[in-house]
């Protein structure tokens, strides 16, 4: 079975269009490492935001640490602005179980108390295991449990989606 995947760059533009009318001057984007960070970078340019984007690596907050251990390539999180009282849009590539978003919110609260957190994702593939909702989403796809979608970036910084079967 082959599935026609949407164009990632178009989905980013669609996301930007959804976010734009609800933007205010203090809003900051935080991308979840690595795919979310790429998307946040592009959103920031397309939306003309002046606040630098934040970057979260949620490895230290994963709920499966006891089972699978530490990811060998942990990247430092970097939040170059004050989280306290700020409106934040978390950005990730694929929303699935919701566990990554849970971990990201836990980490974010260790930087301060944001005014609000919303979620923007390129693909919502269903399969939620936690009460997590994406206010902004590029596309909704129905996928089998053994399929997963991966976001890739080429040398020219162009994003694309690819489907993996296990």
């Amino acid at each position: 079975m082959s599935l026609k995947l949407p164009d990632a760059e178009q989905l980013v533009s669609a996301l930007a269009a959804q976010i734009k009318p609800r933007l205010d001057s203090g809003t900051a984007l935080i991308g979840i490492h690595t795919g979310g960070a790429w998307i946040a970078q592009k959103l920031q340019q397309q939306l003309g935001l002046t606040t630098p984007i934040g970057l979260l690596d949620i490895s230290f907050y994963r709920d499966d640490f006891a089972r699978i251990g530490l990811h060998p390539q942990v990247k430092p999180s970097n939040i170059p602005f004050d989280v306290e009282g700020r409106r934040i849009i978390l950005v990730d590539d694929v929303l699935y179980t919701g566990r990554t978003v849970r971990a990201a919110m836990n980490e974010l609260f260790d930087y301060g108390r944001p005014a609000s957190i919303e979620l923007a994702v390129l693909i919502d593939r269903g399969g939620r295991e936690l009460p997590v909702f994406a206010r902004y989403s590029g596309a909704t796809l129905e996928l089998a449990d053994n399929q997963n979608i991966e976001l890739k970036k080429d040398k020219e910084d162009r994003l694309s989606l690819c489907l993996n079967q296990t």
């Binding site: 230290f60 907050y61 390539q73 942990v74 990247k75 430092p76 970097n78 609260f109 260790d110």
Partner: peptide, 23 residues
Amino acid sequence: TQILDTAQSFIGVTEREVKKLPL
């Protein structure tokens, strides 16, 4: 190198409001 890289990621934690991780 993996140990040194992981340590690098922990450096930033000391600059946060909450200097603790749940690991």
